[in-house]
């Protein structure tokens, strides 16, 4: 016959005995171990686009498609270039034919449905190009909404997609305010710009950056105060796209204009 005192004693013994190994789980949390090593998480990738330098040649778009195995003729792109034309009467025209892949050799502006708009040169008040790529948001809505966790943020800030995990529901495509995500025509899972993560992790530059003849695109580490890109972001007047969504985008723009969508 077990007494009350014995029962209490044994209960405490069992509870104590169980909590010890459970505490060990806490001690060996791999994330914490990684964080304690400190040297690894000293990187936060950011991007700097100098729109003044972009001429709309489209080399970046081509290079990106080749590097990331996206068919050239597929009507989707991990990065693209937009053209903005503002006329004297305040009209704003914008287009990105074939994502700007072949450059902007035609001065007619594509309106969709096979229509084009010719704007007379003397009517143009200003015109410029804006390259776009994934903003690798600090607060990425795409990661939040993925029902299976197939898209995730790396410790150095880049948002990646696990092709073997994605179920192809498209919720992340809906959640991105920048329209960065699409379905890969071959793999049939979601695809997006990842700052050429396979390259930057190995000390290389992104494919678009290498392809840009004018240095309009630059990648940097915002956690390194000595990084030239960080210096520009800290000292110059830079802008980001659509910060009203609270996504905290990490692609910074020099010379961003209010017309940019």
């Amino acid at each position: 016959m077990i007494t009350r005192r014995d029962f209490c004693k044994k209960t405490m013994l069992v509870a104590g005995g169980l909590s010890l190994p459970l505490a060990a789980l806490e001690i060996f949390d791999p994330k914490k171990l990684l964080a304690e090593k400190a040297d690894k998480a000293r990187v936060r990738w950011v991007f700097l686009v100098d729109t003044h330098k972009c001429v709309g040649c489209g080399f970046c778009v081509k290079a990106c498609k080749l590097e990331n195995e996206l068919p050239l003729e597929a009507n989707v792109a991990r990065t693209w270039v937009e053209r903005y034309v503002v006329t004297r009467d305040g009209r704003i025209y914008a287009d990105t034919p074939n994502a700007g892949r072949d450059g902007f050799t035609n001065d007619k502006i594509a309106l969709g449905l096979g229509k084009y708009q010719q704007v007379k040169k003397e009517n143009i008040e200003k015109a410029f190009f804006v390259p776009k790529l994934c903003n690798q948001c600090e607060n990425p809505p795409c990661v939040q909404v993925c029902p299976v966790g197939a898209t995730y943020q790396t410790p150095d800030g880049v948002v990646l997609v696990d092709r073997s995990w994605c179920i192809g529901c498209g919720y992340c495509v809906m959640a991105c305010p920048y329209g960065m995500r699409f379905f890969h025509p071959q793999y049939r899972v979601v695809d997006k710009c990842n700052f050429c993560y396979h390259r930057i992790s190995n000390g290389m530059k992104t494919a678009c950056m290498d392809a840009c003849p004018f240095g309009a695109r630059r990648i940097g580490n915002i956690k390194d105060p000595g990084d030239p890109v960080t210096k520009i972001i800290m000292r110059e007047r830079v802008g980001v796209l659509k910060d009203e969504y609270g996504t905290k985008p990490q692609v910074y723009y020099l010379g961003l204009s209010k017309e940019v969508k």
């Binding site: 597929a74 009507n75 989707v76 792109a77 693209w80 025209y93 914008a94 287009d95 990105t96 074939n98 994502a99 309106l111 969709g112 449905l113 776009k132 498209g170 495509v173 809906m174 920048y178 329209g179 960065m180 995500r181 699409f182 379905f183 025509p185 049939r188 969508k261």
Partner: peptide
Amino acid sequence: VHGELWTVKEFFVYPNEYIY
């Protein structure tokens, strides 16, 4: 691409946007 077949774009639409 998925979505391209039934989507027709008009005016300025981002390249990856379709009715998914």
